[in-house]
Design a binder for these strands. Structure first.
Length: 411
DNA sequence: CCGCTGATTGTTGAT
DNA sequence: ATCAACAATCAGCGG
């Protein structure tokens, strides 16, 4: 795969971790060249999810928790070191520490922070999007070049001649019949759609690239169960899509044969009496549309964050973050998002709709229900904006040590 | 027939 | 309509 290339294998394995961690630890991120050393730390902290995790992953929670604690110290150190090296690092560290916030937001917040950094007020070297910008000119030159070369080679040479079915070069989108039924979006796309809103809401500054990375990380960290849930939806949609497609084709054929004029009526009636014609997909998915954007995702977001993104996220975050917060405008980008917990609702919905294991688990294992409710209530009312949680922010900071200054807070 | 690879598609938002 | 990063999916070809 494309991104595999990057995986260069982490030069440094986490000394502290005896076992290969489930996820975050190992992140050999692709872009590690930027800052290998601190990969996880950045994430780790941020991802320490206190109670959210219960969402879906019970076991992970346990593991991670302990992991987090272990890493915390190292994280600080690393950060410091890194900071020294790269001047930008401190930010990442900061908030990571909250040991256990009562609210789920913690994870989310962290996430935000990371992301927010992307906004970079001024000159920041290398936003995620601008890969070519190359943050470190001298140091990674060779590597970069090599990489680039490799890429190019791969891109151009490799299979171009060899295997390239390439029946039709169609560079970009091929026109599709407008009438043709839309293909069901992939599980990932679905997930992206949902999550993206939440992420953006929390980090307005995050650009598409950042969001994409985060989402990817989340997706990666997403429990299989959850993934499956998405997949199920997709599958169902696909099924219907197939049907619709068949119908569409049939109608098309008939249309061709018969009368073009009948297109409309043919479509409508042909497709299947019992199924919906226009967009089977949407009708199928109860999740996003009904609950609303952000509902599920948000909750998930937290859990995802906690889960520990494998690679990109950490890197991305660390990179970006570092620069911005350097000086001191933490709060600006760092808005804590309202802990909306629509998640609960969602779970219920899902479970009822498609017996979701997740939801059940949550309820069972998570006694926090009351807690959540409270949060929900508070969050729910206020707009997704950032006002409602301002106090939260304070609290959060407080708990973590007031200032995010890395050096300041010693172990 | 299965696996691998490349190309395509989809997500949002800005241009 | 296009692009950004990313993942899923599709299509084609080789063993």
């Amino acid at each position: 795969g494309p991104r595999d290339e990057d995986y260069e294998i982490p030069p440094i394995t986490p000394p502290n971790h005896p076992e290969p961690p489930p996820l975050h630890l190992m992140e050999h991120d692709s872009t590690s060249y930027l800052c290998h050393s601190l990969p996880h730390n950045g994430l780790i902290n941020p991802y320490s999810y206190p109670e959210l995790p219960t969402l879906m992953m019970s076991n992970m929670l346990a593991q991670e928790s302990h992991l987090v604690s272990n890493q915390m110290p190292s994280l600080n150190q690393m950060v410091q070191a890194i900071g020294a090296a790269y001047d930008c690092v401190r930010p990442c560290v900061m908030q990571s520490s909250p040991p256990i916030l009562p609210n789920p937001m913690s994870a989310l917040t962290q996430l935000n922070l990371q992301v927010s950094r992307g906004a970079l007020p001024h000159g920041s070297p290398s936003p995620p999007g601008s890969k070519s910008a190359t943050p470190s000119p001298s140091s990674s030159n060779q590597e970069e070049e090599a990489e680039a070369h490799l890429k190019m080679t791969a891109e151009k040479r490799p299979s171009s001649d060899m295997m390239k079915p390439k029946p039709k070069p169609q560079k970009k989108k091929k026109k599709k019949d407008p009438n043709e039924p839309t293909k069901p979006v992939s599980a990932y796309a679905l997930f992206f759609r949902d999550t993206q809103a939440a992420i953006k809401g929390q980090n307005p500054n995050a650009n598409f690239g950042d969001v994409s990375k985060i989402v990817a990380s989340m997706w990666d960290g997403l429990g299989e169960e959850q993934k499956q849930s998405y997949k199920r939806k997709t599958e169902a949609a696909k099924k219907e899509y197939l049907k619709a497609l068949a119908a569409y084709r049939a109608s098309l054929v008939s249309k061709t044969n018969n009368d073009p004029v009948e297109t409309k009526s043919a479509q409508t009636s042909q497709p299947s009496p019992h199924m919906m014609p226009a967009n089977p997909l949407y009708s199928v998915q109860p999740s996003s549309p009904y609950l609303g954007p952000g509902a599920f995702p948000l909750a998930d977001l937290q859990s995802y964050a906690g889960h520990a993104p494998r690679h990109a996220l950490s890197q991305t975050l660390s990179q970006s973050q570092m620069l911005p917060s350097i000086s001191a405008s933490p709060p600006s980008s760092f808005q804590i998002s309202p802990p909306l917990h629509p998640h609960q609702q969602l779970s219920l919905h899902q479970s009822s709709l498609l017996n979701q294991p997740i939801g059940m688990q949550q309820v069972q294992s998570q006694p926090i229900i009351p807690h959540q409710m409270g949060l929900q209530a508070s969050l729910h009312s206020p707009p997704p904006g950032q006002q409602g949680f301002s106090h939260l922010q304070s609290e959060y900071q407080k708990s973590i040590g007031g200032s995010q200054s890395p050096g300041a807070s010693g172990p």
